[in-house]
Structures are given as C-alpha cells and as structure tokens.
Amino acid sequence: MTDTPALEDDTTLRRRLIRIAYRMLGSVSDAEDVVQEAWLRWLAADREKVREPVAFLKTIVTRLCLNELKSARRRRMSYVGPWLPEPLLTTSDAEVADDITLPVMVALERLSPLERAAFLLHDVFSMGFEEISTAINREPAACRKLASRARARLQEARPRFSATPEQGRKLATAFYEASRSGDMKKLQSLLAEDIVVYADGGGKVPATSAPTFGHERSMVLFAALARYFRKSPSRLIRFADIDGLPGFVTEEDGGIVQTTALQIRDGRIIAIYVTRNPEKLRHLGADQEDTIRPPIDLN
C-alpha cells in the first residue's frame, strides 16, 4: 500500500485557502463555506489517488469559487446601490502580502470569472500555468492570456504612491474627527479634487444609491452628514486597516455598524469606501468593541 500523502498544518493551509477564496469571491463568509466544502471533499477522497493534497485542495477551491461566481454575478445585477466586497480587517502591524487592496477588489468585479482566477492564482498566489490549467480546465497558453488580459485591465486600480501606515492612520483620524464634528474647512483640505465616495447599504440600510463624484458634490454630502451626526452622533469602535487601506469601524444611529476605508494619493483622500450592509459585516462579530472579532491575518 502506498503512503497517504500528508497535509501541512491544517490551520495554516485553511488560512491560505480562505485567502484564495476571499480574493476570488469578495466575501469572507462565502470563502469560509467554500473551504469547508473543499475540506469535506478532501476527507471523502481516495487518498491513495491524490499525489499532491495541497494542489488537490487548491483546485477544488478554485472550481467551487468559479461556480459561486456565476450565481454571484447574477445576484449583483439586481444589487441595490454600489457593490463593495465584504470588508476584511487586516493586522495593522504588517503590510498586506500582496497589493490586492480594496480598490483592486472592486476592479476584479469587472473581470470574467476565468480572468479573475488566472490572474489571482498566478500573480498573487504564485501558481504555475500548468497547475492553473488543471484548476480551471483550460490550456496553459489560454491561462497565460487570461492572466495577461486581467493584468492589463487592473493596471489603473493597482496602488500607486500609497501612504505609510503612520500617514494612513493620521489621515483616517483627521477625516473621522472632521466629518463627525462638521469641520468643513479641515475636511475640504483632506479631499482630492477627483474624490469619489461609495456607500454600500445593499438596500438593507440607508446609503447613497450611486457613487458621489468630485470635490464639490462630496462636500455637499458631508455637510449634510455633519448635520445628521450632530443629532445622532456615531461611536468609534476602532481604527483599522481595511483590505489594505486605512480606515475605521463605527456604530451609527440605530446600532448600524459600518466600516470606512480611505484610498490615499499624494497625501489626499481620493476615494472613500463605506460598507453599511449588515449582511457584509456579520464576520466582524457584534457591534461592541470587546466582542468584535480581532483582525484577520491571512498572510
């Protein structure tokens, strides 16, 4: 009888697989479900026929993600307002191991499922095209073309001139204080002229129905919000790194938990990503500081 191939440490491998699935799906809960299903298939597999368990699991996870993306794309066609991925709080003392920050996660939505898979598996998770070929059932040359096409389409969203963690935290603090206190002069100095604000409520809670573009329109929006905050103050739960961007978690009126992530260029905020949809915040835990889950490190 041949020896049954051994897996590396379960916790480490699960974390790596969840990271792959999260980058593919933009959902922590869906990623966890996919990895659980892949693990069950591994446990039920004929171990003597599986030469490389890790490759087997990566292939299963990729195929399950591709299946999930087909239905997810249909669901998002009827999504209310801007769609943002579920926010992932990363450790503040370590940079993200790849440059797939929140803006890139949003841009990934514009790719086909196969383009997304080929790009992520090769450029982010360092899989060879032969291995990717098995995972997505395409010839290696086709996988190479898919990854190249995706890379070109994502070029604009890749981070440039990103702030240091210290600069990011300083800007996040200044933005939180100015936006909640109504200091319009300070807020005006923080925003770039081409600022864009996204708010994802998913039709579940109040949020803007479309992105807000430009400095002038954004200032009008924040002036209205400042008046609202004077009546219904928000509570800061914590400052955090959200998908590689500086930001914070707050509790708003009615007990609504939301995350705010800031994209920075040349010392100014060029994009703000606010996630309010409660279905996308379940993985953070409860809305109290002592019960919210600690940052997830998938590196």
Results as ranks from 00 to 15, higher is better:
F56L: 09
A178L: 05
R227T: 07
G285C: 08
A135P: 03
V257W: 04
F239L: 10
Q258M: 12
E251W: 10
T208F: 07
R51M: 07
V257H: 06
N299E: 01
F248V: 07
I132A: 12
A44H: 14
R19V: 06
I20M: 07
A117I: 00
Q36H: 14
A147K: 03
T11H: 08
T4M: 13
S92M: 11
T260Q: 05
F119N: 03
A210D: 07
L17R: 10
L146K: 09
L64P: 00
T259R: 10
F56C: 02
D3L: 11
Q288K: 08
L114A: 07
Y228H: 11
A224P: 03
I292E: 13
L187T: 03
R15Y: 05
D10E: 15
F213C: 00
W39K: 10
G247N: 07
P85D: 09
R293V: 08
R153I: 02
S232P: 00
I242F: 15
Q258V: 14
R73H: 02
A45H: 05
G168Y: 10
A150W: 01
I132R: 15
A135R: 01
P278S: 09
P295W: 14
R47G: 11
W39N: 14
Q36F: 11
L281Y: 03
E115P: 09
D30C: 00
E130M: 04
A31Q: 09
A117H: 01
P140F: 15
R19P: 01
P85M: 13
I296E: 15
R15P: 02
M105P: 01
N277F: 03
R217L: 06
A199F: 04
L102I: 10
E166M: 13
F222Y: 14
A157Y: 10
L25W: 02
S234H: 02
D266T: 07
A94P: 02
V249G: 03
V257L: 05
M184D: 09
L40R: 14
R75H: 07
E166G: 06
